[in-house]
Amino acid sequence: MQTPSVSHDHASVSASITLAVLHAAVRLGLEREALLVSCGLTEEQLVDPDARVPFTIQEHLWQLLGSSLPLAEPGLAIGVNLAPGPFSVLGYLLQSSQTLNDALNVGMRYQRLVGEGGEMHMQELAEGLQIQYRPLHPSLPATRTRVLALMACWVQMFNPLIEDFHLLSAQFAHEQPEDLSPYQQIFACDLQFNCAEYAVVLPHDLRSANLIQANQPLEGLLRQHAEALLARLPSQGLSTRVVALLGEQLAHGEPHRGELARALNLSERTLQRRLTDEGCSYQQLLNDTRRQLAERHLSSGKLPAAEIALLLGYSEPSVFFRAFRQWTGLTPGEYRARHNSPGR
């Protein structure tokens, strides 16, 4: 699985989707005010649907939902309770598209308007069209909840818009759960787990299917608005894209600078020169990414430090322990104990 070209520090999501997630959580029995306080959100931040919320805040919201909802798969329940409207201009633009293929292209172009917590990609397979979602920080527990909600919402959105809408398969990066009934009820197709990507596969002939709510004049107006909103989003520098790629490659061992450069269609020399122009270096970005992910794993989960070391690409836990002490002055155990101490 490749990662999206946005970093955790600068990524943001729309206020409308954050508000929609809160609405869904309330329908499932959670208290809105408590969630807002826990995430550090205010109602004022959510008034304008086109406003932006830091991805770190919404990621914390997903973490809370995953631990607070007494359900086997909280993400699927949230996704079923999300409606197209909360996706603001993109949701309405998808619905007004002429065909499913048009809608998919719209989703690809304007996906950042909803959020920068991941990227959609399409790939032609022999059996059908695969629509992939590559999340930022795929190894974090909150990511499973978030991605399942998104995938369930995809199905909920398109099912009433296309006659005979159906999937050939749904693919998940996590292990197969004991209870498959929530998955079967939503996706109604072949379910595959421990996959390289989170994805759904559609029949090729569905791409030309007309959408029931197609509205060409409205689509044109919405595209103008979407383009204006897209232009307002911050541009993505090379260092941002490198950090995102590093976050994924670390889970498979020590990243290789040459492979990362090739993924960006650059030579190693050009990669280093352009990073220098942005005031950083490959090694600095690697260290910073490892530190951020290490602190996040230690503060938000219960993974043993040795497993975290593997997720960060270290061949030996002792190397990770030494690096972490250099970064923070603490051992991983001391950092976790301090973070989880009463009153924090």
Rank of each mutant, 00 (worst) to 15 (best):
H204I: 01
L113E: 09
L310I: 03
L222T: 11
N194F: 00
A34V: 00
A251H: 03
R273A: 04
L233T: 13
S239N: 13
A25D: 06
G40S: 12
A34G: 00
I186C: 00
T270Y: 03
F158I: 11
H10C: 05
E73V: 02
Q213W: 06
M122A: 10
R325S: 10
V106S: 07
Q130D: 05
E163N: 11
A231G: 10
L180V: 06
L22D: 10
R257H: 14
A261N: 14
R322A: 02
F158W: 15
E175W: 12
L303F: 03
R109F: 09
R146M: 09
Q292K: 06
T18L: 08
H174F: 12
S14R: 02
A24P: 04
R32W: 09
R274K: 14
L266D: 01
S7K: 04
E31Y: 10
S208P: 00
G258H: 15
G329I: 13
N287K: 07
A305W: 03
P255E: 12
A214G: 09
Y92H: 14
S267P: 03
R232I: 09
L129H: 03
D164A: 11
V47Y: 01
A173D: 04
R146H: 09
T3G: 15
D190M: 14
L245Q: 12
C195F: 06
G128T: 02
T289A: 14
L230R: 10
A24S: 05
Q284K: 12
S67E: 15
G117T: 11
S169K: 07
C189N: 01
N340V: 07
G91T: 05
L271S: 07
S267W: 01
F158K: 08
L94S: 10
R134L: 15
L250V: 07
Q249M: 14
Y314L: 00
T145Q: 01
M1E: 12
A72T: 14
S139R: 12
L311Y: 14
C39G: 01
Q224E: 08
H60I: 01
E163F: 07
T99V: 01
Q156E: 14
I57T: 11
T18K: 10
P255W: 03
E33P: 03
R144G: 04
V106L: 15
A251Q: 14
L113C: 06
L69I: 10
V37P: 08
L168E: 01
P304G: 03
Q132G: 03
S7I: 00
L136A: 06
S139F: 11
V155L: 05
F187A: 02
S96E: 09
E254V: 00
Y133N: 12
T42S: 15
L311M: 07
Q58F: 01
L30E: 13
A337E: 13
Q156C: 11
F165A: 02
A294K: 04
G128H: 02
